[in-house]
Design a protein around this nucleic acid. Structure first.
Lengths: 157, 157
DNA sequence: GGTTCTCCGACCTCACTGGTAGGATTAGGG
DNA sequence: CCCTAATCCTACCAGTGAGGTCGGAGAACC
C-alpha cells in the first residue's frame, strides 16, 4: 500500500510553498528543487498535477514561479494526495465508487452482491481518507518549523 | 496506495478456509482455486506466505490441504495483510520503524528531526493498521455468508 | 534580446507484479 | 508397491508503471 514519490514530493513542494505563503511573491521550482534536493524536471510534472487541481497558481516568465491558491489552513491533504496520486484506493478495482451505485470488481460478479474483501478494503480506504482529511497543510508547515511538538489530535475544530 | 493481488487473493483464501473451519478436514488449494476462479500455481505461493506467518497449517499428500491454524475470531486482518504484503507502509522508507528509535528516510537527514511529510504518513499508516486490526476473519466469513442485499443466490455449496 | 521562468510531450530504464513451468516430496489407496 | 493427489520449491517470463531525463516552445521581466 505504498504511495509513490509523487505524493511525497508533491506534499513537500506544498509545504515549501506554504512556508513562503506570506511573502506574496511566487517561488520558482528551481529554488524548491535545490532546497529539497529533488530533480527539477520531475517536479515540473508533479506541480502540474497540483495546478490542475487548483491547489497552486503559477506566474510565467522571469521572477515567476508558484504560490498556493488558498491559505494553508484550508488545504486538506486528502485533496492534495488525491490530486497527486489520481486516486486513493486500496485495490485496483476501487477507482472511486464512493458515490456510484454498485461498481463491483470483476471477480465479484458471480458472487452476487459484493465480495467479503470489499468490506475490508472499504474500511481501509475510509481510514486513509480520514487521516488525510484531518491534516491540513498549515499543520505540516508548522511541524516543519518546530518538529519537537508531538501533534496528537489537533483537529478539534 | 494500492494493495497487490496478493492481499486480495490471500484474504479470499482465508475466507474460504474460514467457511470450512468447522469441518476439521483440510481444504485443497485446487478446490479453492476453482471456487474462487483463481490461478492455482499463484495461490500456492500466496498460501506459503500465510503458512510462514503461522496463520494456516498444511497437510501433505492425498486428501491433504490447508486449514486455519487458529479460530477465525482471533485472526485479525492486520496480521494477515502484513504477512501477505510484507509491510503496511505508506512510503518506501517506512519499513517498520514503529518500535525503532529514529529511522529516518534519507531525505530527512538534513532537516534535523523528521520531515513534515512523516507526520502525514504516520497518521495514514495508523489509520490503515487500525482499520485492518479492527476486522477479524470471522467477520468477513459472516459477511460472505449473507450479504446485505441478496440480489442473487449466494454460493453456499 | 537575452535571461529566466513555466509549460508540454516524447523518451528511457528498471524493478516488481502477476503468472507459468517443472519438478521434488509426502501421503493415502488399490 | 506403484499410482495418484496433494503440498512444496525454484526458476523463469512478459507486461506495466514508477521514476526520471531531454529538448524545446511560450511568456514575462531586465
Amino acid at each position: 500500500m505504498i504511495f509513490t514519490t509523487k505524493a511525497e514530493y508533491g506534499v513537500r513542494l506544498l509545504v515549501e510553498l506554504g512556508r513562503h505563503y506570506e511573502d506574496g511573491s511566487p517561488v520558482s521550482l528551481k529554488a524548491i528543487a535545490e532546497a529539497e534536493g529533488l530533480p527539477l524536471a520531475y517536479l515540473e510534472r508533479i506541480v502540474a498535477l497540483l495546478k490542475k487541481a487548483g491547489l497552486v497558481e503559477s506566474t510565467r516568465g522571469a521572477h515567476g514561479g508558484y504560490r498556493l491558491a488558498r491559505e494553508p489552513q484550508s488545504i486538506h491533504m486528502d485533496e492534495a494526495v488525491l490530486a497527486l496520486e489520481g486516486a486513493v484506493a486500496p485495490m485496483s478495482c476501487f477507482v472511486d465508487d464512493s458515490a456510484e451505485g454498485g461498481v463491483l470488481c470483476s471477480h465479484v460478479i458471480d458472487h452476487g452482491q459484493g465480495c467479503a474483501t470489499k468490506l475490508l478494503w472499504m474500511r481501509v480506504q475510509g481510514g486513509v481518507i480520514k487521516a488525510l482529511a484531518q491534516t491540513t497543510l498549515a499543520e505540516l508547515v508548522a511541524f516543519h518549523g518546530h518538529p519537537v511538538v508531538p501533534a496528537r489530535e489537533p483537529v478539534n475544530a
